[in-house]
Amino acid sequence: MKGLFKSKPRTPADVVRQTRELLIYVDLHAGSRGADPKREEEKMAELSKNIRDLKCILYGNGEQEPVTEACVQLTQEFFRENTLRLLIMCVPKVNLEARKDSTQIVANLQRQQVNSRILASEYLEANKDLLDTLISGYEDTEVALHYGAMLRECIRHQSIARYVLESDHMKKFFDYIQIPNFDIASDASATFKELLTRHKATVAEFLSKNYDWGLILFPFPQFFAEFNSRLLSSSNYITKRQAIKLLGDMLLDRSNSAVMMRYVGSKDNLMILMNLLRDSSKNIQIESFHVFKLFAANKNKPAEVVNILVTNRSKLLRFFAGFKTDKEDEQFEADKEQVYSPEGMHRTDARVRRDANEQSRPSCMGG
C-alpha cells in the first residue's frame, strides 16, 4: 500500500513551473511590508532548492551526466513564459548560493538547442531590456559579478552583442573598468574585451562606424580618443596594461584592417604609444611595442607621423638598442629589427621626410 502514496517524480518541466511560481512570489513579496517572515523564509528555501535542482538537470549531479532529453524539456518550458526574466530580476533577492546557481543556469541555457534553435537567443532578441538590467548591474556591488558573468554568456549571440555595442551602454564601460572595486573592474574589463573581440565582423562594423562615434550615434568623443585618454592614459597599472593589450588584439586582427590604418595614421595616437614605450613597466612597454610597430610598418605614413618619427629617430634607436624581453623571443627580436632597421623606420619617402622636416614639431620621447 505504501507505493500508492508515493509522490510522482517531478519532470524537468514541473521543476521549471514550480520555480516560476516561487520566483513570482519572491518578486512580489520579498522584503515587502506586511509579509509573513516565516512564510517568506520557507518560500526562499524552497526556491533555492528548485534553482539547485535546475542546475543539476543542466549540468548533472557529479555522478551522472546531464540527460539531453531532460535539458530539452527544461529549456522549452523555461522559455515558454518569462522564467528567464524572473530569474534574472530576482537575483538581488535570493541568497548567495542561489545567485551562483542562477548564474550557471543562465550561462548553460545560452548553449541549449531545441530542434537546432537556440531559444535563449530568440528570447533575448525579444527582451533586450534584460541586457540593460545586466549591464547596469555593474553599479550594484551585490550582483555585479553575477550579472557580469550572465552578460558575457548572453553576448555569445552575435545579435545580442551587436545590440550592446550599438547601445548607449558602451560608453559606460569606460567608467565600469575604473570602478575602485578590483573584482568588479576586472569583470567589466573582461566583458568589454569580449564585446570588442568575439564577433569579428560585427566588431569591425562597429569600429568603422563609430571611429568618430560622436558624429554617428552619441554626443560623445571618438571611441579611440576616449580609449586613449581614459584607459591608455590611466594612472592605474592594471587598467593601462589591459587596455594596451586589448588595443593590440583589435588592431592586429585582420578584420579590423581598415580601422587599424586609420589609427596608425594619427599623430596623436602615435604620441600616446611613444609615451607608453617609456612606461616604467616592462610589460606595458612590450605590449605598446606591438602597437607601435604598426605605425613604423605603415608604408603610407602621413607627413605628420613621419615628422614625429624622424624628430625622435635617435632617441628611438637608443631605446630599441637596449629593449629586450625577459625571455628569448625570436619573433620579438625580428619585429624589433624590422622597426628600426634601414628597411623599417629609416626608410622613409624622401619627399615626405623633407616636407615633415620643414615643420616644427615637439619631441615626444624624453631624455
Rank of each mutant, 00 (worst) to 15 (best):
K336M: 08
Y123M: 08
E328R: 07
K6W: 10
E122Y: 05
N61P: 13
M250V: 15
A13R: 13
M170L: 14
L87S: 01
M150Y: 04
G31L: 10
H157K: 05
S341G: 09
E333W: 01
G62A: 12
F173W: 04
Q242V: 00
R52F: 13
Q112G: 05
E287N: 14
G31H: 07
D183N: 14
G60M: 08
K43S: 11
L317N: 06
L317M: 07
E304G: 05
P362D: 09
E139M: 11
L195H: 05
M365Q: 11
P12L: 08
K8Q: 14
F289Q: 06
I284A: 06
Y211C: 07
Y147A: 11
D329C: 00
V67L: 12
F182V: 12
V264T: 05
P37W: 13
I284N: 06
I118T: 12
L134A: 09
L309Q: 03
Y163E: 02
L316N: 04
D349T: 11
L131K: 01
I184A: 09
L131T: 04
S102T: 13
A303S: 14
M170I: 15
P219T: 07
K38W: 14
E287Y: 10
E46S: 15
K8N: 14
D27M: 01
K240N: 09
H199N: 10
I308C: 10
L195S: 03
D326R: 13
L215I: 10
I24N: 02
E226R: 11
G31I: 09
Y211A: 04
H346F: 10
K209Q: 10
S186R: 08
N312H: 03
L4F: 07
P9I: 06
M89V: 12
L317Q: 05
A258H: 08
T348P: 02
E125H: 00
A201N: 13
I244Q: 01
N275E: 14
L215E: 11
M274C: 14
A297I: 01
G148K: 05
H146F: 15
S167C: 05
L86A: 08
I57L: 00
P66M: 03
K336A: 06
E153I: 00
L251K: 00
V291E: 02
A204S: 12
D168K: 12
K128I: 11
L165G: 04
E42F: 04
I244K: 01
L109V: 11
E343C: 10
D279V: 10
L58A: 06
L196D: 03
S121V: 08
I177P: 01
E122N: 08
R198D: 13
A144Q: 12
S167H: 08
T325W: 00
D14H: 12
D53S: 14
E226Q: 12
Q64M: 15
K200Y: 07
M271K: 15
K299W: 03
L277T: 11
M150C: 15
P66A: 06
Q338T: 01
P362E: 08
I284R: 03
L54E: 06
N307E: 10
G344N: 07
T191R: 02
M274T: 13
A356Y: 01
V91K: 03
F78G: 07
I272Y: 09
S360I: 13
C364A: 15
L145V: 09
H346Y: 11
P302K: 02
A45L: 11
K2S: 08
S121P: 00
L84Y: 07
L232V: 03
T239V: 15
A120I: 01
V94N: 02
N275I: 11
P219C: 05
R347N: 15
